[in-house]
Design a protein around this nucleic acid. Structure first.
Lengths: 393, 393
DNA sequence: TTCTATTTGTCCACTGCCTTGACAAATTAA
DNA sequence: TTAATTTGTCAAGGCAGTGGACAAATAGAA
């Protein structure tokens, strides 16, 4: 394990300079070379050289001129957004959503198809087809796509990328989906848990912007949490960080045989919520959707069911608060993003913890994972294209 | 915010090279210049230059010669451990422990004094005296001490370093202890929560070596947890990460007025444990120490008290596991490190969570925070002396 | 003991990257 | 039209790193 690679002469200094220029342009929008020099502290000469190289390689492009100030007009440069493309795919139990975006993360095209129920290798075929559709819709060549991020349910092993538990989707636990996707598309692929991606999405462009510590809690058919701590995603030892299904809340965790499903998920998942509604007097066979309709009409059974779910969720947030101390909890998922539920949680939380966490509803609804995947893909693309690699550091 | 500082000509390349050399020497022990060159990938010439500079500045020193291999003998170099010193201070409610260590983190001298009950500014006087004692004991000059780390109970604001809640120690919530210490000693000071330091200590030289995700749980008068996640300390938004006192476990978190003390701490702290023992039939007025003596003799009340504490702690570990997914939980503190208790926790944990975490007892006992402080101090010293600063990166 | 293979470490020439200062070019304000 | 100001290029110089040549030093073999 060599610490510095240093194949050629002294590429490191130029790489650092290039990286500084790119980051400055990325952060400061259209900017002149003179301003880049002031901002980075590098000399005008160096900046001119670097910008020239970047322009001939197609990464930067001149976009305009300054005016209004005294002195010679300056040519302003911007990142050539179309120089690199990335794809985000959100694999769900019923549908596959996908988007293609440019170097700045602007989404150019988006599509959605039903998930192939046969699962397994057939999904890879679907991904291929979806990617083809996207490049066609966007009118771009596949060669410029440099990164694909796939969000899936389930626990992913951080080391191998192996998907451990994915109840909704058939036959993906035994195949190396990341490798298959990489091979099929010929570009680097990343797999990440969908709730983790939702958290990344909120960090990128949602409520989590500039928040270094927050959690995204998804309540729906199942329960999950994505954690951003110290400004980066927390995966845990086996990739199971945020698997709040197993929180010892909402039932007796020592109940033999019961805890394997997850004490918390057994208490607040959609099945439990519907059953609770029925138990409180709701219509036999009612779904969670029915419950919220009834809630709207002021149905007492529905209100009681929501209240109880909110109470348990508040306890879970209290537990998360005592462990992670997030500045913010973002609620998502088909149930978790319901304003009625969140309002109730906001009422319960200060009653069970002295330092209640701020709670927001996800900004992106069911597109959060897709957005987050794009954020990750763009970040990795930047790293791959412009990143400075000191070996380890 | 300039991205590269670049005061002089091109200091960055030489800094990177120097850093690579130092890290290689640090990791590979006594090593020749030729081997450093092979290891880093840099040329022999560069290594010779860098080593010469480092030697004249006193950071490296030749320690021997190679032999046994064919070819010319090589001079091997080692880090000059005494070139830089660091101090770790552990501020406790009853005593102040402190140690001085060298560039490699070897502890040279250690001391302990009772905490000045007047607290506040008097503590700074004590710190000063303790530091003087240490340098005298170690026979070193204060000028070579480059970093001091202070561990304290309480929640520290990550941004300001302000100590929020420190029940055991008088008058330190209103003063800027870090600034006072820095000014008094004339060297950079860092303040960190003592349980966090204990976790860092285990990571540095204890059970947490090479474990990227683990938690150190301290049970004693109070309860606390230090978290290492993704290989680094997790502080949370307000520095309150790991404040498991507030876990909604071991009582009714909605009990009005009760939760301010912390539901979990109220259930497993030493006061609660002694009261539980008495409640189960133990001697009126018995302490936790008495409890464990009785436990040793097979006293049923004591056994029941330990069992209940273990059961609740297992639940807390289950909650932490569902949130952080640590590979390991290390138990510490006067109660938490008791083997009897840990044995019971190990029995309970698999009964309340499907993926029980491995549990170990702290390797350093009540010196864990002191050791951890030394680890942090040494790491910061290395960073300050040899670190490569790309501005942000 | 002598020779050979091998390894260490230095010397030297060369290249790449960055900086500084000078200066031409272009624009606003007076 | 002129002065002030800013942009961007040119040219010279320095630092850092590389690679090849080579002297020095040693183990092992003849």
């Amino acid at each position: 394990m060599a610490i510095t690679s240093s194949v050629a002469q002294t590429p490191i200094a130029r790489k650092i300079s290039t990286n500084a220029v790119i980051r400055t342009v990325l952060a400061q929008g259209p900017i002149s070379r003179a301003d880049i020099a002031k901002f980075t502290g590098l000399s005008k000469q160096t900046i001119s050289d670097v910008v020239r190289d970047l322009e001939t390689d197609g990464w930067l492009k001149p976009v305009g001129k300054t005016d209004g100030r005294p002195g010679r007009t300056a040519i302003t440069y911007e990142l050539n957004a179309s120089a690199g493309l990335a794809i985000s795919i959100d694999l769900g139990g019923t549908k596959i959503a996908a988007a293609i975006g440019d170097l700045l993360g602007n989404i150019i095209a988006e599509t959605k198809v039903p998930t192939d129920a046969r699962g397994g290798i057939h999904l890879v075929d679907q991904f291929q087809a979806v990617v083809n559709d996207l490049t066609e819709m966007a009118g771009v060549e596949m060669a410029k796509v440099r990164m694909v991020v796939l969000g899936t349910p389930g626990v992913l092993d951080p080391a191998t990328g192996h998907i451990h538990v994915a109840p909704n989707i058939a036959g993906i636990e035994d195949i190396d989906l990341r490798q298959l996707l990489t091979d099929r598309l010929g570009i680097p692929a990343i797999i990440e848990n969908d709730v983790n991606l939702a958290a990344e999405g909120e960090r990128w462009k949602g409520h989590g912007v500039d928040v270094g510590n927050f959690a995204f809690i998804a309540l729906g058919t199942g329960t999950g949490m994505g954690i951003i701590a110290n400004g980066s995603l927390l995966r845990g030892g086996r990739g199971a960080a945020g698997e709040i299904s197993y929180l010892p809340i909402g039932g007796d965790p020592f109940d033999p045989g019961g805890f394997h499903l997850g004490t918390f998920e057994s208490a607040v998942g959609s099945v439990a919520m519907a059953r609770r509604y029925v138990g409180f007097g709701g219509q036999e066979g009612a779904s969670v959707a029915d419950l919220f309709v009834a809630f709207e009409k002021g149905d007492h059974s529905a209100i009681a069911a929501v209240e109880e779910t909110a109470r348990l969720t508040a306890l879970a947030i209290a537990a998360v608060g005592a462990t992670l101390d997030p500045q913010l909890v973002i609620m998502g998922g088909s149930i978790g993003a319901r304003p009625e539920l969140v309002a109730a949680i906001r009422r319960y939380l200060p009653r069970c913890t002295p330092y209640p966490t701020r709670i927001e509803i996800s900004r992106f609804g069911n597109r959060a994972a897709l957005i987050g995947g794009m954020g990750i893909a763009v970040a990795h693309m930047h790293e791959e294209l412009f990143g400075v690699d000191l070996g380890e550091a």
